[in-house]
């Protein structure tokens, strides 16, 4: 516990970095996969190849991606951008399927009604399609967030890894406390993020929780 007190600043710093490294890719992933998913529902021949590509990308080992990226895109080896880009790739590769499934879950007659009462395309996607797709998209978002939070630690191997750096520290000094603190905090972070997402989803979709239909 002495160690924790003495290093609270460091721990706090790593926790913030961890959160930042995990959440930025989540947001970027969403911003990329939503338009991409929409295009794939418009041109349905795109959907299967995109989902398949997502599957392949997701199966790449994260460590390999962290190391190959700098060479590929010319970033510095020790840049946070590597982690962010790699995790964004994972986020998109997972989310794309949920976005496509979510948009497809909007009933045909609802789409038809929206067009017929005079929604323009952008307005329809933003206020009809996406809100209705929220439950399916959020299912993917939760997986992505928890996965990202655990993968950030792997970045410690190339020097940037939020709480993962505490593991490195512990191994280097042959000292257990930082490792335990790192594990506990990243678990807590994942749990909190998941709870926050569930809460957000509940706020966004009051309609998805209504009780059974009433008789006439």
């Amino acid at each position: 516990m002495r160690w924790v007190d003495d290093n609270s600043l460091l721990i706090w710093e790593q926790l913030r970095e961890h959160l930042y490294l995990a959440l930025i890719p989540m947001v970027l992933g969403l911003l990329i996969s939503v338009p991409l998913g929409y295009v794939a529902t418009r041109y349905s021949w795109l959907a299967n190849p995109l989902v398949a590509l997502g599957g392949v990308l997701y199966s790449l080992p994260s460590i390999a991606l962290f190391i190959v990226l700098p060479a590929l895109i010319g970033t510095k080896v020790l840049s946070a951008a590597n982690i962010i880009i790699a995790l964004t790739i994972y986020a998109v590769s997972l989310l794309i399927r949920n976005v496509i499934d979510g948009l497809r879950s909007v009933p045909e007659e609802v789409l038809q009604a929206a067009v017929s009462v005079g929604y323009g395309t952008l307005r329809r996607v933003m206020t009809i399609d996406l809100p209705i797709a929220v439950p399916v998209i959020f299912a993917g978002l939760r997986v992505v967030t928890v996965a990202n939070i655990s993968m950030v630690s792997v970045g410690a191997i190339i020097g940037i890894g939020g709480l993962g750096e505490l593991f490195t520290l512990g191994f280097q000094q042959d000292f257990l406390t930082p490792i335990v603190v790192g594990v506990v905090l990243s678990l807590a972070l994942a749990l909190l993020a998941d709870v926050a997402l569930v809460g957000l989803q509940r706020v966004l979709t009051p309609w998805a929780r209504v009780n059974t239909p009433k008789e006439a």
């Binding site: 009933p107 007659e109 609802v110 038809q112 009604a113 009462v117 009809i128 809100p131 209705i132 309609w207």
Partner: peptide, 13 residues
């Protein structure tokens, strides 16, 4: 415009 299954927006009251 009115259609068969009403096509109401499920997320709106």
């Amino acid at each position: 415009y009115v259609i068969q299954h009403a096509g109401l927006f499920p997320h709106k009251t």
